[in-house]
Write a protein that binds this DNA or RNA. Structure first.
Lengths: 203, 203, 203, 203
DNA sequence: GATGAATGAGCCTTCATTCAT
DNA sequence: AATGAATGAAGGCTCATTCAT
């Protein structure tokens, strides 16, 4: 190795790894994990095919790492919400808003999560998707808080509501992405969703 | 030739095609579409690999046909619900109950639908999933009816509610299947879900 | 078997075998032996796939039978030529005329012979194409006669000339078929070919 | 890293592509295109099956590329002949000599050309065999020149003669290869062929 | 670390052939 | 004899992964 490569190493966490993950998000979003080729990701990332294997054990690992990395970022964004000094109802509304905001800001990531997350948690060997559970638990925590504050009905099942809520958001987001439906703003959808979940549909 | 072979030929509703579809449901549910081999399906169906291609153009077509066939059956079951002479609220409750009942009765099919349906509607070439849209519209019709009956709040967006409702049911079902959680009965989950959607979460 | 099938059996050599051979000629001519499916031949012949195997051992055998049968017919047509009481030169001219006439009358057969004959004599196992050799020997016999009559130069190699002549006719015919060139009549080509072979190209 | 690896990199005229083409010639010559497996070619070339697909789109493309590449080489050899300052008669004799010489030097290639060329020009999709037409036109050019020099009879059809000549050479070559007939030298056959075409067969 | 040519296991699909009816 | 649904061996091709440079 020449003297020149003794050059000042960025301390920041590996640049190229991020590059590859970001490329993978885009490629997986467009083609789906199984239809996407490692070579596609490499090309999009501007690296050689082999380079990917310097940072990831294999294609599955790339997907898992992608989930982990991005889930971490997402969790960070949502976690701060919990600590806010606002009512559980307000938190729930903010949660829903933030969810749709995220979807709007990074549709590719959203697609990967929505479609591949499901495949993967079922078919990737030895992958227990803890981060996703953590994410659901943020909802759970808000609900719990609401019950503690005697805001929410104490008979509702936290377990069910967190799934119900996530499922609802997820499906609304998917269709928004799928149809490219820009007419209905996600902001408005967020409000309606919150209203229905909070007040119910009955007149 | 015995008297019995003066047959009485099975109604001939393509026996073997069904056989293959049923095998495919099981195999796809366990391994996922992309990890499942056509040979796996053939073996499970008790036919030769080539036989599958007598009934389906290719592996993709098998998945799509599976959707179409089963969706048809499902739509039939749900459609009759609409025509019943009961309130929209009752219909919605029955819809939710039926949904979970079906999930319970055919978990394999449910798994395929939940996981692969998403993949496919996005990544299978040229497949516009009309049957799924029809299914969503059954929910839509109930909501509409409820609004017409002045039962439901007329400000709610039918489009959003049908997605919200489906997403919620879907996610609850997925987790139930995934975790094999027999403790919580789906029946109870159905009631809770209906309650929340109808009455809201607020105390 | 019912009394009706005791019906008068045509004494003529199997009808259906001919039917299949004729279909095979057309199909092989259009698609080539290797690209043609047995099912294609069956469909064209208006019989079931399995029926072909009642008359032919396998696909190769169908091709060989086709050659044998048709070559027999061709040999019969050409053989009579030899016995005519005309000069060798006249015979050669008639031979050439007859060759092109045949091509004109049955282009499909011609295509099969031209293209598949070559494949087959090389790659079909255990097939010694005696009939083709007999055909070439008809040319050889005419040349021999011409030499015996002191009409043709005795120094020419009969072996070479028969190949040369056949090759020339064959290529002219192929191009005529290939290009669908109706402008140049084969009749005229026949005369020119005969002239060149007899008189040479020199001025 | 040793001094030797400061290489001197092969001119890099795709080494491996040639390797595969040469292997394909041998394999196709022995088994025929349709009976040859891609794996056979790979094994003979000493590469992995997949490597072939780095250089050729598919099996058909391998055959076509083989034609194109080799035809190019052949055309180059024959083209120089046209420019020589010798009579058209001499050129024709040299053409015939060169043709047989090439056959003798590369029998495998000759076999592939003679047998597969016919198949392919008819049955490979979208392949217009321009190089073969160019080759025929070299003969045409010589004939034209001979007519211009008042050497050849001006009434002969150039179009017919070039086919006639090629067909004759081709058939003679085929039989020589097929029978492995070493007794009759091709050199002598070349002379006889030229004599007959130039002087005719009549005494 | 980076490359990308090479690898070869694996799978979908075809189609000649069979055989129960 | 005739059928045509069923078979399953075979092979073209892909693509995740490796490794020499």
């Amino acid at each position: 190795m020449s003297v020149h490569s003794l050059r000042f190493k960025m301390p920041r966490t590996n640049n190229k790894k991020e590059l590859i993950i970001d490329a993978a998000i885009k490629v997986f979003a467009r083609k789906g994990f199984y239809n996407a080729k490692v070579a596609d990701v490499a090309k999009r990332a501007g690296v050689a095919d082999g380079t990917i294997y310097l940072y990831f054990k294999n294609k599955d690992d790339l997907l898992i790492s992608l989930f982990e990395t991005k889930m971490e970022e997402i969790l960070t964004r949502f976690s701060s919400l919990i600590e806010k000094k606002i009512s559980a109802e307000k938190k729930l509304r903010e949660f829903i808003n933030l969810y749709f905001l995220m979807i709007e800001q990074d549709q590719d990531l959203a697609e990967v999560f929505q479609v591949e997350l499901r495949q993967s948690s079922k078919f990737l060997k030895d992958y227990h998707n803890q981060k996703f559970i953590d994410f659901l638990n943020i909802i759970g925590a808000i609900i719990e808080e609401g019950i503690a504050q005697s805001l929410f009905n104490k008979n509702i099942s936290i377990h069910n509501v967190k799934l119900l809520l996530f499922g609802a958001l997820d499906e609304l987001a998917r269709q928004w992405i799928l149809t490219g439906d820009a007419s209905r703003s996600l902001k408005q959808t967020a409000n309606e969703t919150a209203d229905i979940l909070l007040y119910g549909m009955l007149k």
